[in-house]
Amino acid sequence: MQYSILGSSGLNVSRVCLGSMTWGRQNNQQEANEQIDYALSRGVNFIDTAEMYAVPPTPGTYGTTETIIGHWLAANANKRADIILATKIAGNGLSWIRGGADITGQAITASVEASLARLQTDYIDVYQLHWPNRTSPHFGKHWPGRIQFSDVDTEAHIDQMLEILEALSQCMDAGKIRHFGLSDDTPWGIHQYCRLAEMHNLPKPVSIQNEFNLLHFKDWPYLIEHCVHSEVAYLPWSPLAGGALSGKYLNGAMPEGSRWTLSQRNGLFRQNAKTDAAIARFVEIAHEHNITPSQLALAWCNQVDGVTSTIIGATSLAQLTEDIDAFEIGLSEAAVVAITETLKEYPSPF
């Protein structure tokens, strides 16, 4: 396993980050335990979760994943120091989480306490804002005209950001969190948090996790350049495009129990003729180079300049093994050329 420094935090994290959003919906406690144990045996030391999980998010599954991780930590207290544990506070819009309200300083304080209780730990290594209070061009809203940036009250959002930073700083001073990160945000969001942190001597974000894969790479190059020069670690989520890049949904297939058989959310299942054509070509390239389509997609993410750690998710140990193996694969020049030509042919199908 290879490791990288997580932004300006000084934390040394594995290039593989174990995602957990299926735990509590598609996976039970025993299966989650097996995934954690196996990942640790392969050198993974970075686990990502969220108060909102499991997914698809529902009132009944809220907090379930953190609770499952908490049970594992309680049974393996001697391993807590070996893990970089990241979780997230949900943003606005979910009626069963703080009435769907914005993230505020008060919400940060209360949510940190609740996550600590569910996780059965004294501290969270990286506490992340799951999505910003303003509408951002994520979850399929990246096409021109989908949202109006000029409708945003800039100063009001900057004031909210400062209040959030002050609350995060208080949690850090109390030893409840070590660092904080962003998720589903933009270069403007990163810049404002870094600027406010410097102006007010407050903690700066050490990471951001955004959707990034062979079908959806809008963060390259501008946001990722910002991350590199601001010492903000870039963490791709959905590197397999919700499993689509495995090829398992081609030709209308819908494997039983797969993610796309669950309820649609936020327009993430963006299947169309162009995505299918791109995926079919990536499948061919993978087979030409004697690796699986999933491994091709993950190995590509891993070699993108500026990527610190890629968040993977699996519902079986077989999938988890295949995925972790991908990070030991160095793509050949011929494979990279073939991938690049396909990206040019299908520049943003997802």
Rank of each mutant, 00 (worst) to 15 (best):
S9P: 14
G10W: 04
L11W: 07
R15H: 11
V16N: 02
W23F: 15
N27V: 06
N28R: 03
E34I: 05
E34V: 03
D37R: 07
D37A: 14
R42S: 09
V44G: 08
F46A: 06
A50C: 01
E51S: 14
G63Y: 02
G63L: 05
T64Y: 04
T65R: 06
T67P: 07
G70R: 08
A74W: 01
G91D: 04
G100C: 05
D102P: 13
D102C: 07
G105M: 09
G105K: 09
T109V: 14
A114G: 12
A114V: 02
L116Y: 00
A117F: 07
I124Y: 08
Q128I: 14
H138F: 10
K141T: 01
H142K: 07
I147R: 04
F149S: 13
F149M: 11
E163Y: 04
L165C: 10
G175A: 04
F180C: 15
D185V: 04
T186D: 05
P187F: 03
G189W: 00
G189N: 00
I190K: 01
R195H: 12
A197W: 12
L202K: 03
L202S: 02
N210Q: 10
L214I: 02
F217H: 15
W220T: 05
W220N: 12
P221V: 11
L223W: 04
I224F: 02
I224E: 00
H226T: 15
C227D: 14
C227Y: 12
V228I: 15
H229Y: 11
V232E: 02
V232R: 05
V232P: 03
L235R: 00
S238Y: 10
K248A: 05
L250S: 06
A253L: 04
P255K: 07
G257V: 10
R281H: 13
R281L: 10
A286Y: 04
A286E: 06
H287F: 05
H287G: 01
E288T: 13
T292K: 09
S294Q: 06
L296S: 02
S309H: 00
S309I: 01
G313N: 00
L317T: 09
L317F: 11
A318H: 13
A318M: 10
T321W: 01
I324T: 15
E333T: 12
A334V: 11
A335L: 00
L343S: 04
E345Q: 15
E345H: 12
Y346K: 12
S348R: 13
